[in-house]
Write a protein that binds this DNA or RNA. Sequence first.
DNA 1: TCAAAAGTGTTTAAAATACACCCATGT
DNA 2: ACATGGGTGTATTTTAAACACTTTTGA
Lengths: 242, 242
Amino acid sequence: MSTFNIDDYIAQLSIDCVIFGFKDGELKVLVSKLTYGDNLWCLPGGYILKTESVDAAAARILKKSTGLDNIYLEQFRVFGDENRILQSKYKENIRQGLLQLKDKRFDEKTIAWMANRFVCIGYYALVDINKVDPKPGEFGASIEWRSIDDLPNLTHDHDTIVSYGLKALRQNLDEKLIGFNLLPKTFTMKEVKELYEAVHGTSFAMNNFQKKILELNVLERLGKKFTGAQNRAPFLYQFKEH
Amino acid sequence: MSTFNIDDYIAQLSIDCVIFGFKDGELKVLVSKLTYGDNLWCLPGGYILKTESVDAAAARILKKSTGLDNIYLEQFRVFGDENRILQSKYKENIRQGLLQLKDKRFDEKTIAWMANRFVCIGYYALVDINKVDPKPGEFGASIEWRSIDDLPNLTHDHDTIVSYGLKALRQNLDEKLIGFNLLPKTFTMKEVKELYEAVHGTSFAMNNFQKKILELNVLERLGKKFTGAQNRAPFLYQFKEH
DNA sequence: TCAAAAGTGTTTAAAATACACCCATGT
DNA sequence: ACATGGGTGTATTTTAAACACTTTTGA
């Protein structure tokens, strides 16, 4: 039996995280395969301790799924429909899944608590995909990175949550300079461009893109990156910490 | 004793509303004076029924404060600091206020429920100020419109909530065409301009502003507005419903 | 006919986009 | 020397801001 105690947590309020990563020119989301249902997946999520802030809860949940501290994260929306879980098209799967957990990891009271209606706070997080060591949560059998364009079936309203999260990321990518959180410490301009293209789903002209990014004055030019390819070596850049 | 029953509501989760209005060239917010504290005010707010969506709860709270249905409203942020109420600089006032309510309108259990830590969902609403008949809520002695530049002392973190609400309004004013919700059914271009100036806190050139607004193709030009003033009568406009 | 304010057209500046070209690299 | 992709400068277009002027209204 788990040490999870429902009295420590705020009831009917949960957090779900859209964890974004970037690799091979693709924007990716970390999704967890459920122990129940047929190839049914979900977003990493959890509950809020009565003694911690909502932001701290999100950071704690992210640490559990990724192993990382100090992740860039931002709340983007509350999902408060009264039927978002109980009338989900996967409601039968969810019911079966909870029944499986009964007497195994959680007692009946805990299961009832979890099966209740929940208001969900959506967070998105941006991580350097190379640093992440993904770990499935309480209800996950496995966890993996999936391209935003090729997501599996997500339970509850998690597909809606992802699309709102992406929308928020798009808005903030240009306003705040958060995109670099998705890249390793050093990167080429082409990688930045491919990242922006992946997020926005459009393509940009290299020269104009480079001009615009460099005019922001947030990048430091380091040496060149010699890959052995028979072409001019691209510069490496680093995000200036202010 | 009130008919308020804590078992009907989600615990530790509340809604606060920044209700915006526009009059005499000023952006205004509806604030309620508390029955306790020395000239202490707050935003209209309330709790969420276990059976209703969060959006419906916000609409219900707005109806109670303004008398209006079908108000334009949007959630903009969650305020989830664990100490946002308990460590508020008005915490002593709040404690006294709750004590006053004991045995009067609410029983001890209800007071304890209300005095708990709460996570708050911030909504902003846009109304035609002329249509509103403001009514103070459960804890309000009175309610009135105050200019955004001249707000009284607000309890808890309600000043923070207002400033985030204004920020959200600014962002959405240009992206979505929501500003017209603050105006009466017909209005002059000058009023639209003054509204945009009040929200953004800057001034615009009339000719360029008019050009930009009319290019949006969302306004219908009606007749002229003759006021008796010895100058050219301005056109009246109306928002096109699509 | 005059003052006050509305409304419109034109010029100028700035920003975004498109086009053309040169440079470094390893075979 | 050459193919490959990186990098930069200039021209063009589009958009935004500034400037100048005409029109309407009631005294």
